[in-house]
Simulated scan of single mutants.
Amino acid sequence: MRHGGGGLRERKKLQTREALADAALRLALEKGPDHVTVEEIAEAADVSVRTFFNYFPHKEHAILGRNPEQLERALERMRTASPDESPLTTMWHVVHDVLEELGSDGELSRRGELIMSSPTLLYQLMLSSIDDERQLTAALTERMGEPAGSLRPALIVSTAGAACRVVMELHKTAPGRPIPELLDEAFQLLAQGIDTSFGPNNQKGHP
């Protein structure tokens, strides 16, 4: 995981959050997510249980590596993006920033496999992803100058999220290809149009 700039206090907070997330992931892989306790995670990270709850509301968010600051940085990235930067390009930057902070391909793969094997983790990821996408869509809609409820910004955000999920799944069957490389290919396909021949009303035999 990367350690960004900022003052000593901010760096120590980041290190503590990363230590808790690393401990949570390691223990969940060893024992199974349902058999890990907050007390064990805090002890492994050498902090108090009270400190744990300063960073995560529950153990599932620690195992997922959830960091609310990631969303804040993503929203700021949208607000400060160059007017010449396309909305999909902005989402590409946002996704790559999150992946870089979450760790190496190996760590991402281990966490991804663990999530897919745990209904509880999958449910928590779904809940947090829905909320993230809602806020990102609102920010992108405003940046694009479109009215609330517009389809295009919502599709850009949601398809970017879908691309990440597909890439993580495919990486298990093609581990030789780095996740960022697969992600770049996925975004290129989105940019080009997945099926430019789409036209159900033009098919022969259509009533």
Rank of each mutant, 00 (worst) to 15 (best):
S158K: 14
P147E: 03
D34Q: 09
S197F: 08
L102M: 15
S48G: 10
M116G: 08
G5F: 06
S118R: 09
E85D: 11
T196W: 01
N201A: 02
K172I: 08
A162S: 14
R143W: 14
L99P: 00
A23F: 12
G103E: 05
H93N: 09
T80H: 07
L136M: 15
T37G: 04
A62D: 07
L108W: 00
M126D: 14
I179W: 00
Q70G: 06
A24D: 02
L108R: 00
E85A: 15
E76V: 01
T137D: 03
A163C: 05
G145M: 07
M1N: 04
E18A: 12
I63Q: 05
D132E: 10
A139F: 05
E18S: 07
P33A: 04
G176H: 09
A19E: 09
L64Q: 01
K13R: 09
S104H: 11
G199Q: 13
V38M: 03
R79M: 06
V49S: 04
A162W: 09
P207Q: 06
A62F: 07
S86K: 14
V157K: 06
Q188R: 13
R110Q: 15
Q15T: 04
R79Q: 14
A163D: 02
V166P: 00
V157Y: 08
L20A: 12
A24S: 06
R11M: 14
